[in-house]
């Protein structure tokens, strides 16, 4: 059975079925065009996924950091309060009346008469001055407090 002729070339020599996609002269082959679209779509999807992944990672890290930042700021404030309270309690415990109350039962009493002994070679000529010297204030050490502040500063400035 002969294939029905649906169209003839103007010269009538070549058979071109009408149902076959026609390629424009010099243009891409249609299925190749579809493959390229598909690749582009896949690339776009991949890129979008990458951006999404990057964005989510970034957002997660930022949120984690901010939560940590909030915790550190709260911890800093709580430590300041606790520190102040402890200083107060220490000062109260060191009050002369409190010390006397505690020292009495342990057998301590204010000296009624002090006796001095000669010690050969003991430096002479600066009696009493030591008692009046103010306690020298040392330069502050980098302690837990400062480390906490530094952590906060680093978080705020983004330095590491």
């Amino acid at each position: 059975m002969a294939t029905p002729r649906t169209a003839l070339h103007p010269q009538g020599s070549t058979y071109i079925p009408q149902t076959h996609p026609r390629r424009a002269k010099g243009g891409p082959i249609p299925w190749r065009w579809q493959a390229r679209t598909l690749r582009l779509a896949l690339l776009a999807l991949g890129l979008a996924s990458l951006i999404g992944w990057f964005n989510l990672t970034q957002a997660t890290q930022e949120t984690t950091t901010v939560i940590r930042w909030h915790q550190l700021a709260s911890q800093l404030e709580a430590l300041r309060r606790e520190n102040a309270q402890l200083r107060y309690e220490i000062a109260h415990a060191g009050e002369l009346a409190v010390l006397r109350r505690r020292a009495g039962p342990q057998g301590f009493a204010p000296p009624q008469q002090t006796e001095y002994l000669f010690l050969p070679g003991y430096p002479q000529g600066s009696w009493g001055r030591q008692g009046l010297e103010a306690t020298p204030t040392p330069a502050p050490e980098v302690g837990a407090w400062d480390r906490l502040l530094d952590s906060l500063r680093l978080l705020l400035t983004g330095e590491s």
């Binding site: 404030e77 300041r80 309060r81 102040a84 309270q85 200083r87 107060y88 220490i90 000062a91 060191g94 009046l132 103010a134 306690t135 204030t137």
Partner: peptide, 22 residues
């Protein structure tokens, strides 16, 4: 506002005479 702690007053041997608690 985070209130600043007022500076403490210490004696010559650094005994606390006045300070802030919360």
């Amino acid at each position: 506002t985070i209130p600043a702690q007022r500076g403490s007053i210490l004696d010559r041997h650094e005994t606390l005479l006045a300070g802030d608690i919360y």
